[in-house]
Design a protein around this nucleic acid. Sequence first.
DNA 1: ATAAAGTGACTTTTT
DNA 2: GTCACTTTAT
Length: 714
Amino acid sequence: MDYLESLNPQQQQAVVAGTGPVLVLAGPGSGKTRVLTHRIAYLVGGLGVHPYHIVAVTFTNKAAREMEARLQNLLGEQQRGLTVGTFHAVCGRILRREAEHLPFDSNYVIFDADDQLRIVKQVLQELDLDEKRYRPQSVHASISRAKNDLIFVDDFPVQTYRDEVVKRVYTRYQQILLASNALDFDDMLLWTVLLMEDQPAVRERYARRFEHLLVDEFQDTNVAQYALLRHLSSFHRNIFVVGDVDQSIYRWRGADYRNVLRFEQDFPDAQVILLEQNYRSTQNILDTAMAVIDRNPHRTPKKLFTRRGRGQKIVVRELYDDREMASYVVHRIAEDVATGAAQPGDFAVMYRTNAQSRLLEEAFLAAGLPYKLVGAQRFYGRREIRDLIAYLRLVHNPRDEVSLTRVINVPRRGIGNKTLLTLQELARSLGVSPGGLLLRWGGGETPPIGEALSARAAASLLSFGEMLAAWHQAKDALPPLELMDRILADTRYREYLDDGTEEGQERWDNVMELRRLAGEYHDRGLVDFLEDVALISDQDTYDEDANVPTLLTLHAAKGLEFPVVFIVGLNDGTLPHFRSFDDEEAMQEERRLLYVGITRAKDRLYLLYALNKSTYGYPEPAEPSRYLDDIPPELVEGARSTVTRKQDLSPRRTAPVRLEAQFRPGMRVRHPHWGEGMVLNSTVDADDEVVDVFFEDVGLKRLVASLARLTVLR
DNA sequence: ATAAAGTGACTTTTT
DNA sequence: GTCACTTTAT
């Protein structure tokens, strides 16, 4: 088999690069996944490396699955034994196997973002700290950042009083995790690195095993991940990383693109290979992307080029507000589909924040067009889904106090706050976890209740304990699906949800969806089910086979491509996001985010901004994104004479009728964005006034008077 | 103990 | 406008 077939010279060079460190700097659409998979195929099929000795690490399950699928095509059964997975999944496997060296056992559960926040809140309450002064999110972010930087509790530096508070919360937070036999996302990396450092023999075993280490999206690694890679490659030094600093968009999660520079320092003998040829987009799209990203300082400029030709110009368009924007998108899609110019699945709509999806969804719904939204939170964040996962987690690991607290009174079974508190105290006095106590109680042991509990409360607890004990006993014999069915039946969960409303039905449908998912784990079992559910990412929910338009955040778009891309809400404050305004590094990342979005487009690109945006309900005038100014007009369709006009797409909204012209040729006017200009012409339309204005700075514009917020100057 | 009604705070991005 | 959390009434 020829592993170099259909690869360009740079790709080939990367695929057959000799042993030792290799750094591949790969622009968007340059075929980096091809390079990674062909490299592995070459190692196994060409050099005869056993797959057992190869590990490939990605950031999302989707990327891992895609790599596996492509390897299956290239290698067939020869690929068996390969380790391909996300950082967290690979660490998870190592931690379960090596649990004897660690302060938790191999049945540990993974606490997700919501659980983590709950614990922080609980701790803040315990320590009698004011949640207004110490916002749980922000305290948690500090803890997470420390962990990503490999700073353990004892080493947490204290310079301010706030640091001191965070350290106290961090300490207690960590105690609770361990008492619950639980890890958060950051712990998975942190404990693995700690394991490698504290147990040289273990490190040696893995370092010897992994002869070849391959890493995707290397620019998104954080300190902990980089440390882990160094440990795992410490014996063979065959570390092959692929990345693009211009696509680094996870700084807020601890990612540091400077790891790419660090790599070159730490491995001075590294081969560096540049992939610049783009196989995805037209040259106009690439030029747009470069115009945006070139403004970032301290970059090694890359020249993205394609053989696909210039293609169509990009569309930059102003819409009245977010609603009109959504409506415009839907109508454009409907039109292209109707004329046969494109298929529904060709389109993607991208935005900066999740909240922006709502109006888009409404517009699709109103038009009766199916669409798909990428985002796991949507599903896994739902109350009913979290409840059921909490039940399963509790059965799997009764020490999980977060889950116990969540479900002990759902559906209502007469166990209120007071009773729960008494249970917790009782458990503490006996030196067991509350879940453990209930389990034993339900299994026949009677705890020394004394006067602490009323007879009714005790009966409620006992009956819950009995259910828990029965499930716990059955869990090893039952596949996840059957266990879930049993829980649903015993708790009468459906009756609890079904309140006769549409919402109740929807919730039950969600439960059925989770049930379907559980069914896929018949052979792998509960542990894998719970782990996968905890580590699922938004990007993992992208379904390329659906042939419907895709709605997704710019972050979730990384690694994907679409024939037609709409980027909506290109307004200052949204992109760049206002929270980044006072942080230079963050602002550079906003720019990279737009760059990532633009480079997803193969053929057509729409950049849309609103004249008015609404910040939680209330509309206010908005500025176009500053990044739009960086795009050369010759790349933009009709750039010289933008018609600024409210789209007459929703018949419900009609502009106020105006009979007389307000503006006359020769008048001097001011526009909030375009500055001062002179009116050249004005005509009264059926329901509005259309004014042509020549602006000093931007030239001729056609404006609708009722929307353009023009003021007349003397 | 629970349901209903009221409050305030908040939205980047997510393994 | 939406959510989570708190207060209030039963």
